[in-house]
């Protein structure tokens, strides 16, 4: 098991290096000069712009800039933001909790809504409950989360004054962003779990469990849910990446200071150290989450553990 974790982490290193390289190249391919962006409106002479370029290290050849970045990274140093002069690590750390909380609570919404709804619907396909669940998931998949977010704000904040339109640090102000971002994933989970439950309910071991006299609830939780959850967990893990993407837009809509909105603004201002740092952090988060998913799936389903170890 330890070997498995070590190997997976080892494999992640070239992945992270690869994404920093791609991010570095992409951000340089886009025309524009960070020094000029920074000095826009500053009544700067060409000499001042040249000095700033030098200070920022932008006059160095590209390979040199990347090498500096990579060496610093190995020392755990992500560099200094062009815009604020604060360390990138500080800037990212101060925003990471907001994104983590949003991502986790959206996932919580997705799991708490999606799995029970899928279970209930799958147990009695064709029932009224099933029809309702299918409609909810249909709408969830069809309506983009940013549109849902705007609708929710309009109804619950602007009209009813029940919930906050922008983040104010309270759990209450997390409700709308978490629901709008989590809803679509809840819908995906509902469909997935429903399909699996329908299959499992027909399987031999369920029949035999029932024949042994197990109660319906026990059958559902011990047999059906456990077997249905492997694809669900894998999906949840994969969706984490999507949720991080969605978090960027959700953060902007709800005025949340998170990594996603920060990365977006840093790209448009060519704040290269921040873009690089954010890409590294998000890249590592991806790798870690995928690793976590593999481990959880292994715990649920011993068969995959053997395959992985092989």
């Amino acid at each position: 098991m330890t070997l498995f974790v070590v190997r997976r982490l080892g494999a992640a290193i070239p992945v992270v290096i690869g994404i920093t390289l791609i991010a570095f190249v992409l951000v340089h391919v886009v025309p524009g000069d960070p020094a000029k962006v920074i000095l826009y409106g500053a009544n700067a002479s060409p000499e001042q712009i040249a000095t700033l370029r030098q200070q920022l290290g932008l006059d160095e050849p590209l390979w040199r800039q990347y090498a500096d970045f990579a060496v610093n990274l190995l020392h755990g140093n992500l560099g200094t933001s062009f815009l604020t002069q604060n360390s990138v690590a500080y800037e990212l750390l101060s925003r990471a909790p907001s994104t983590l909380i949003l991502t986790a609570s959206s996932m919580l919404v997705a799991v708490l809504v999606g799995i029970p709804l899928g279970l209930v619907a799958g147990m009695r396909p064709g029932s009224i409950l099933d029809t309702v669940a299918r409609w909810i998931s249909f709408v969830g998949v069809a309506v983009p989360y940013f549109f849902l977010a705007l609708l929710l704000v309009l109804v619950f904040s602007v009209r009813l004054h029940l919930l906050s339109a922008i983040d104010d640090g309270t759990a209450k102000s997390l409700v709308l962003p978490a629901v709008s971002l989590g809803w679509g994933y809840a819908a995906i989970l509902t469909r997935l779990v429903r399909g699996r439950v329908i299959d499992e309910m027909r399987s031999d071991y369920v029949k035999s469990a029932r024949a042994r006299g197990s109660g319906e609830v026990r059958v559902l939780l011990r047999q059906v849910l456990r077997n249905s959850s492997v694809p669900a967990v894998t999906t949840i893990g994969l969706q984490f990446g999507n949720i991080l993407t969605g978090a960027a837009i959700t953060e902007v809509i709800f005025g949340r200071a998170g990594l996603g909105s920060f990365l977006a603004t840093s790209i448009t201002s060519k704040n290269i150290p921040v873009v690089q740092g954010a890409v590294v952090v998000i890249g590592i988060a991806y790798v870690v989450i995928n690793l976590g998913v593999d481990l959880i799936v292994g715990a649920i389903d011993p068969r995959t553990r053997q395959e992985a170890a092989a």
Partner: peptide
Amino acid sequence: SGRYNALQSGQ
């Protein structure tokens, strides 16, 4: 629109 919404919600 976030600023306008927050103005309307009283935040």
